[in-house]
Nucleic acid binder design. Structure first.
Length: 906
RNA sequence: GGGCAAUUAGCUCAGUUGGUUAGAGCGCACGAUUCACAUUCGUGAGGUCACAAGUUCGAACCUUGUAUUGCCCACCA
């Protein structure tokens, strides 16, 4: 006999179990031609972060898929890794250093030392996240773990860049970029946040027109007035040139027209500042205008500002306004103007648009041989989804994906930070320039421009070329550039290793929908480009076959969980410690449907902790009653004795079938719910209750228990593995096989009968409750006609047992069964006829109400069944069903009428 | 401004191809409980499926419109 604790204590087992799994190499799939591979690339968490709920959902869902496939005999690979998270890491470490008194980390430490600092920090926190992934029970293959800055992956990035460079897909271009003066970096559009801010809106006399602006400090060099061509107010000024008295003296201005101007906005006339505004930049490009720089990279005014040079924006603005006022140019000030300012979502620095040379990826140039045509990156990205090579779950995101791709601009690849993959581009310069450059530890590509270093040649190379003096482009690549390669660079690409050949393309890419564009789209881009370049057939060039997008977890108020609101932020690790990892996993899976956000609170986790405990106790009960848990009961047909046995086996088999369907269709929530329902609602509430007493069928119980553990294992791996070992199995459940469902052993008759018995018992319970009969009191119940005597005959045992448990005597007059049942009466202390137990009048009213309801339903049914269009148009099954239902209702009606008669006679 | 969605019980959410009486968990009310489990068991109350019109034999589900909410993209001199 095996003794188990009264309650499952997750903390006692989880670490031990995980260690056993990992040591057993259960996570490491073998490359075998006999087995089919199933592969998931784990979206690499930031190496610097700690595990949050988003990761926990991701890990739970992927672990479910991997564990099931592994049990089904697939060679299941789940490849884990971490991401270097360029901007996040560098900004975190810089902040930390600043707190320690190193005010300007880049200048003070220089490139090598700062990188050293970041590296040591990342190494430490990488271990943290690794262990946190283990805590969640993730059965990933740690022997294949990768990190985006590993030498091999770095090489992959260089190869990718180099090929695109040679293909002419990567170019160095002038662009207005979102410059963050605080972090001294450019920021991708994706990484911007907009913040509403109330500010002054100034109306300033500019020659013959009044212009409106919120930013007078950028206007020193504004020489062009733009108006809408149809704006009558300014028609006579079109194309005119004139002298304007401006902030620092007089300048020459010109009027041009363009349709991008909104006449309703401000005065309908504006001057442009091409170097510090995207719209103005585009206008200047179109009209081939100069783009003088006004603000430097620190956010300070340059020499063109005259007396204001060197001031920061916030210092200068009031002074400039003051000067305009003195000169009589300030017309009026609107103090309630609200506009959106862009801030970097990391660090919240206010964005100052600047012109810079950046590396771009051309997404429109035809460059890939695809299905017999030469296509652009964009076209291929659309084709793989449109043609169904890649499916997105839920489907509606396919539309969103197409919409995004159609509006896709060239991808700005460079970042003015150091942590990451340094751009594999070298600039040939003079010896003198090289020397000048070496004095600047704070190098970034901007310095190349401001130091006026003359570039003699630009070359792609992984290492410094030998012929002459070279400067390595100091910038790094966008983090997503390396992440884009993840599915195949992590398998050894650019080498065509055995792993790459066997495991790629991966099967499912599971992630939150928030990074569909950041990451998913770019993986498709990189994979199709690189692998097609290698000459693989199209179907092998996709990174994955299915994209499953889970919903984001929100707090109880529907807000995104973030560290900025710690009061509502749920820490998955803390919850796992408190309630067990299994409970946390269930709470994140159940109720989570693809693409829809889910709110989570602690009570929900506690609820699933109760369920895990229920599994534990049901198993505990089973173990107390199973003499030999090692007995082979797989051929279950031989061990079935009663109708109840047949019923629970049927239910189990149906469950297996449903779980298979649900998991195959990515309905994780539904699947988990059905097992929950089966265990709590069928197995514990009924089968175990019915089994109590003398005639427990321990073989069937063992069969059900073992299969339930198998079904549960992907969802709640820890508790099931513990129980599995308590059963005396030497092999672990993780390596056991998934229950097979062949469609056999379904006993519909018994299924129906037990359902009826359940109904009878429930109604007895409710009678007891309605009439406040204590459970200790033995009562007699009368089962009315309608529940057939044949049923009672064939399920005598069950009824007897349940009757005992319910302290119930069943009487059915004139029946064979009742004779046997009457024998029971001898054992009864107290005999209370059922009729005496309730308020007859009330009961009759209730029944009459039932009659009205039933008649209404019957009325509806019969009118439908007499409707010729229904009979002609509705499917035959539906009609048959409705007919059957009508007969049933008619019978029910009779029964109720009979009941009323009986009651009235009392 | 463009796009995508959501609206179902007090709360959080399911509801698969349109098909019988719309479900679950939590919460609430009442009751039980030595015999696997108080992390338990039983019973119950609680719904005009946001609103309106349409298609259909039949609509929570399909169509159109309205309202509210959320998200994404763009713009904001």
């Amino acid at each position: 006999m095996i003794e188990l604790e009264k309650a499952y204590e997750s903390a006692k087992y989880e670490d031990v179990i995980y260690e056993r799994w990992e040591k057993s190499a259960a996570f490491v799939p073998k490359i075998s031609p006999k087995k089919k591979p199933f592969v998931i690339s784990m979206p690499p968490p930031n190496a610097t972060g700690t595990l949050h709920l988003g990761h926990a959902v991701m890990l739970a869902l992927e672990d479910i898929m991997i564990r099931q496939k592994r049990m089904q005999g697939y060679s299941a690979l789940w490849l884990p890794g971490t991401d270097h998270a360029a901007i996040a890491s560098q900004s975190f470490v810089e902040k930390k250093l600043q707190a320690q008194g190193i005010k300007r980390p880049r200048e003070d430490l220089g490139r090598d030392k700062l990188l050293e600092e970041i590296k040591s920090f990342v190494e430490t926190s990488k271990n943290t996240i690794r262990n946190q992934i283990r805590k969640m029970g993730a059965s990933c293959d740690w022997t294949r773990e990768k990190y985006t800055l590993d030498a091999g992956l770095n090489h992959a990035v260089n190869v990718f860049f180099g090929r695109m460079f040679e293909d002419g897909l990567i170019y160095h271009g002038d662009r207005i970029v979102n410059w963050d003066p605080r972090m001294q970096t450019t920021v991708a559009d994706d990484e911007l946040e907009y913040k509403e801010e109330k500010t002054n809106f100034y109306y300033i006399q500019y020659g013959p027109v009044v212009i409106g602006t919120a930013r007078p400090e950028t206007k020193f060099e504004d020489k062009i007035i733009v108006v809408h061509p149809d704006d009558n107010r300014y028609k006579k000024l079109h194309g005119k040139e004139f002298e304007v008295d401006w902030i620092n003296g007089s300048i020459k201005a010109k009027v041009i027209t363009d349709r991008c101007i909104d006449p309703q906005m401000g005065t309908g006339a504006m001057t442009i500042t091409p170097a510090h505004s995207l719209v103005d930049f585009e206008l200047a490009e179109r009209f081939k205008l100069e783009k003088p720089r006004i603000i430097d990279l620190e956010g300070k005014l340059l020499d063109v500002a005259g007396e204001f040079a060197g001031m920061s924006i916030s210092q200068a603005r009031p002074k400039i306004v003051e000067k305009l006022k003195e000169k009589g140019l300030l017309v009026k000030v609107d103090e309630n103007y609200v506009h959106n300012i862009a801030v970097n979502y990391r660090g919240k620095g206010v964005i100052e648009p600047q012109i810079m040379k950046q590396w771009f990826m051309d997404v429109n140039k035809p460059a890939i041989e695809w299905k017999g045509k030469r296509m652009s990156i964009k076209d291929v990205m659309i084709d793989v989804v449109e043609s169904g090579m890649i499916k997105i779950v839920p489907k509606r995101f396919e539309k969103i994906y197409f919409h995004w791709i159609k509006n896709l601009n060239d991808w700005c690849l460079s970042r003015q930070i150091w942590w990451g993959h340094q751009i594999p581009i070298w600039f040939k310069v003079s010896a003198e320039d090289k020397k000048k450059w070496s004095h600047h530890p704070e190098s970034s590509s901007y310095l190349l421009q401001s130091l006026k270093i003359k570039i003699l040649e630009t070359r792609f190379s992984e290492s410094e070329p030998a012929d002459g003096h070279w400067i390595h482009d100091p910038d790094t690549l966008d983090t997503w550039f390396s992440s884009a390669l993840w599915t195949f660079s992590s398998l050894g690409w650019p080498e065509h290793t055995d792993d790459l050949t066997y495991f790629h393309p991966t099967d499912v890419l599971e992630t939150g929908y928030d990074i569909l564009f950041f990451w998913v789209a770019r993986m498709i881009l990189a994979s199709t480009y690189c692998l097609r370049y290698d000459g693989l057939p199209e179907e092998r060039c996709i990174p994955f076959k299915t994209v499953y997008l889970h919903g984001l977890i929100r707090d109880i108020h529907g807000r995104k969980m973030s560290k900025s609101s710690p009061e509502t932020c749920i820490d998955p690790l803390e919850m796992a410690k408190k309630y067990g990892t299994d409970a946390v996993r269930l709470s994140l899976i159940i109720g989570n449907t693809p693409g829809n956000d889910m709110r989570l609170n602690e009570e929900k986790i506690a609820g699933y902790r109760n369920f895990v405990n229920k599994i534990w106790n049901a198993s505990r009960f089973a173990l107390l009653n199973i003499p030999d848990p090692q007995k082979d009961v797989d051929d279950i047909e031989r061990f079935i004795k009663t109708g109840t046995d047949r019923w629970i086996v049927t239910k189990l088999h149906r469950l297996i079938h449903e779980i298979n369907t649900d998991l195959a269709k990515y309905r994780f929530s539904d699947g988990a719910n059905k097992i929950y329902e089966f265990i709590w609602g069928e197995l514990c509430d009924w089968y175990l209750e019915i089994s109590k007493g003398e005639s427990m069928n321990s073989d069937v119980l063992l069969y059900v228990l073992k299969n339930v553990l198998r079904l549960l294992h992907p969802f709640v791996p820890f508790v099931t593995e513990v129980i599995w070992s308590k059963l005396g199995n030497s092999e672990m459940l993780i390596g056991d096989s998934w229950p097979k469902y062949d469609g056999g052993l379904i006993y519909e008759e018994d299924e129906k009968k037990i359902e009826i018995i359940k109904e009878i018992i429930s109604s007895i319970r409710s009678i007891r409750a309605d009439n406040k009969i204590e459970h200790t009191q033995k009562i007699q119940a009368v089962i009315y006609a309608g529940k057939s005597t044949a049923l009672l005959e064939s399920h005598k045992d069950t009824i007897f047992r349940m009757a005992r448990l319910e302290n119930l005597i069943i009487k059915e007059e004139g029946d064979k069964v009742s004779k046997a049942l009457w024998k029971l009466i001898g054992e009864i202390d107290l005999y209370i006829p059922l009729e005496g137990l309730f308020d007859i009048k009330k009961e009759i009213e209730k029944l009459k109400h039932q009659i009205v309801e039933t008649e209404n339903k019957l009325h509806g049914l019969s009118s439908r069944l007499s409707n010729s269009s229904f009979l002609n148009k509705a499917p035959a099954e539906i009609v048959a069903k409705e007919k059957e239902l009508m007969l049933q209702l008619q019978k029910e009606l009779e029964t109720i009428n009979q009941k009323i008669k009986e009651l009235e006679n009392l």
